[in-house]
Design a protein around this nucleic acid. Structure first.
Lengths: 113, 113
DNA sequence: CCTGTATAAAACCATCAGGTTATTAAACTG
DNA sequence: CAGTTTAATAACCTGATGGTTTTATACAGG
């Protein structure tokens, strides 16, 4: 997986508006106007968010007369998840926490407790 | 989970330097100088990246004389993974791809095949 | 053809991100 | 105390982000 794709995907997910848009699209296609409605934000602002999502490959767009319905494309989310999977051990197990704790006790000074 | 934490976590992960730093830290603590070594980048630049990671809760720092060793704190990665889990169906199953495909065939114009 | 609707594009602005160099601070070493 | 190492801070620059308003484009319908 190219780093640029991960860059774009994580960057796209770093905005709550865009995450909300993806959540909305998870329940089906929607037009720009429909997507914009819940947000106190102008239509062009939403269009910009959609462009970010599109650039990351997280949505694709159809054509229905004047409307450009957006559809969720979740494949980049798999790449992101795959990357995160490498760290699953670090929050699931405690072995490394123990290790870190021992390190800490070893190097700790008693002053300024 | 607070949206701000997700914002900060995804934003932190959107930079390849920071992902590399986390990867490095997965194999143990490291000092700023050690972390900076592989990158063609000044020390302050790396310190800034570390601050971003710290603000997202992805690392914590100890104290060993002049050194401030960094340690991986993977818990925010769990929050990020949990969020992504909601979309697992969308890349694993094909039911929605089929659905989308049918939609597309229905609305497609035959020109510019 | 004009009107209304849906969306994109342009121009602009403020803030943030990521980098730099130079300086400062803190802690060990002699 | 002076010097070295390690790291943070400050000041600065450039380009990207996220928002605005205004304008243009594309299509549908009377």
């Amino acid at each position: 997986m190219s780093p640029d794709l991960l860059d774009a995907t994580f960057a796209a997910l770093a905005d709550p508006t865009r995450r909300a848009i993806l959540a909305r699209l998870a329940s089906g296609e929607a037009t720009v106007t429909e997507l914009a409605a819940p947000f106190h934000m102008s239509q062009p602002a939403v269009s910009k968010h959609l462009k970010v999502l599109e650039r990351a490959g997280l949505i694709s767009r159809g054509r229905d007369a004047q409307r450009r319905p957006c559809r969720l494309e979740a494949r980049p989310l798999k790449a992101a998840t795959d990357w995160l999977e490498n760290y699953r051990d670090y929050w699931e197990d405690s072995y490394q926490r123990l290790d870190a704790l021992l390190d800490e006790l070893k190097g700790e000074e008693p002053s300024k407790g």
